[in-house]
Design a protein around this nucleic acid. Structure first.
Length: 121
DNA sequence: GCCTTGACGGCAA
DNA sequence: GTTGCCGCCAAGG
């Protein structure tokens, strides 16, 4: 019951739109929503996401690509395994290669024309 | 009612 | 180019 239900709904919608093998950052979502400074609220919205939800919140990382909310899944390695299983490259144990798997909600249509999810760097 | 904390980001030094 | 500090939104104590 957040004060900005529409904001949370938008976050959920974007997170649900994240393609497999791809990750996005809180800032990207916030910016896509028109509030680049509301990255914190995005994180808070995800925190409010019930575990029963099918939202791939594990694909949401901070701008560093670090699995900051790993403990929200009960254990960080859970999210790590999920991302790794999707083919998300990791540069660190708790950090994904954003340069290779970053996905921007605004580029959604652009990505749709690009079936190739993992272009060679 | 005010201060602190938090799944963060951006700008300045 | 890198590192550090401040800011923003919201909730909890």
């Amino acid at each position: 019951m957040p004060a900005s239900p529409e904001f949370a709904a938008a976050v959920y919608a974007i997170v649900a739109r994240i393609p497999p093998g791809r990750v996005t950052t809180y800032g990207r979502i916030a910016r896509a929503l028109g509030e680049p400074r509301a990255a914190r609220e995005v994180g808070w919205a995800l925190m409010n996401v019930p575990a029963e939800s099918d939202l791939p919140c594990h694909r949401v990382v901070n701008r560093e690509g670090r699995l900051t909310g790993g403990w929200a899944f009960g254990q960080p390695e859970i999210m790590r395994c999920l991302l790794a299983d999707e083919g998300v490259p990791f540069v660190e144990a708790e950090q994904v290669d954003l340069e290779r798997c970053v996905w921007d909600p605004g580029d959604d249509e652009r990505e749709r024309r690009q079936p190739a999810l993992f272009p060679p760097a």
